[in-house]
Nucleic acid binder design. Structure first.
Lengths: 168, 168
DNA sequence: TTGTCTGCAAATTCTTTGCAACGTT
DNA sequence: AACGTTGCAAAGAATTTGCAGACAA
């Protein structure tokens, strides 16, 4: 997974790669607990397929296509989930703001888990297909200010930067 | 699918709706001339279908889905274009940076003509499906600065703001 | 004439849905 | 028992592609 630290960001406090740790187990477990609680409180039941999908998101902190999720489950040997179930689960998770959907423009949607606190980040899409997340407070502030100037009531925003492959 | 251009454009300092005029005929003609020249110089031939598609973009300065283009052509009574031709034309135009593709995340790509000078704008997607373009210099500067901080070589960027329906 | 462009239909790819069986509460 | 959940297969929707004929240069 080509999620690495943005080198030039070092020392610039408010810029940082959003996932500095390839897969922070603690964050994953926290998210998965949160997700299961939210769904339970919504009156939904615990099923094998959905749990498996949640498990994938808990373990893999990166953008995943629906088919990727099926593949990881199959590869892990454990209980799998049908592609239809995966899509249904993604819908459910999205309804409860537990995952975000990302449209890189290649015709295949990607999903990634949402942070409980409303924290969010954006993505740099490199020419070679690599996707790297980032967060930048200055950018967020610019968006806020812009919304005010436009006079619209913002409920969210998606930003995708397109970049040439890293020379480094 | 009801994606229409919102007409409202207000002038807030350096923020402005990118298409204050529902369809600026001069800009449309300019673009269409430019497009045809670029394609001719690329060694491509002039065909009825492609010309018709270019004509639609020249006349309609807003985001269009492939099917929309076919519909407009059919409605206008003049020469039409097959959906396959439209897709092929869109590919060609995109290859030559004559149109941009926009993925609102609803599974259907939208296209809009690109300005010859590299001018570009972004979009506000309202909850009711309305899409409104805007341009904001401060935001562009924020993106530039951000790219530097991230240490990436930016070749483009897409920004979609999601907003509640306008109360006004 | 030569190579491109078009329309039509078939094929692909991603995503959604119907339905009967299964599992949770 | 009641009702949400799942798998399988079929259905849908958007986009792409194969081909033969039409057309521009």
């Amino acid at each position: 997974m080509a999620v690495r630290e943005a080198g030039a960001g070092r020392g610039v406090s408010h810029v940082h790669a959003a996932h500095d740790h390839p897969a922070d187990p603690a964050a994953g477990a926290r998210w998965s607990d949160h997700a299961e609680r939210v769904l339970r409180e919504a009156g939904l039941r615990t099923g094998g397929g959905r749990s498996a999908v949640i498990g994938v998101f808990a373990a893999e902190d990166c953008v995943l296509a629906a088919q990727d999720i099926v593949d990881r489950l199959r590869a892990s040997g454990g209980p799998g989930a049908n592609l239809a179930t995966v899509y249904r689960t993604l819908d459910t998770l999205r309804d409860h703001d537990l995952v975000h959907r990302l449209d890189p423009g290649d015709g295949t949607a990607r999903y990634e888990r949402a942070q409980p606190g409303g924290e969010h980040h954006h993505h740099v899409l490199f020419a070679d297909g690599t996707i790297e997340p980032f967060h930048d407070d200055a950018l967020e502030q610019a968006i806020e200010a812009l919304a005010g100037r436009l006079g619209v009531d913002l409920v969210g925003h998606d930003i995708v930067l397109h970049a040439a492959p890293r020379s480094a």
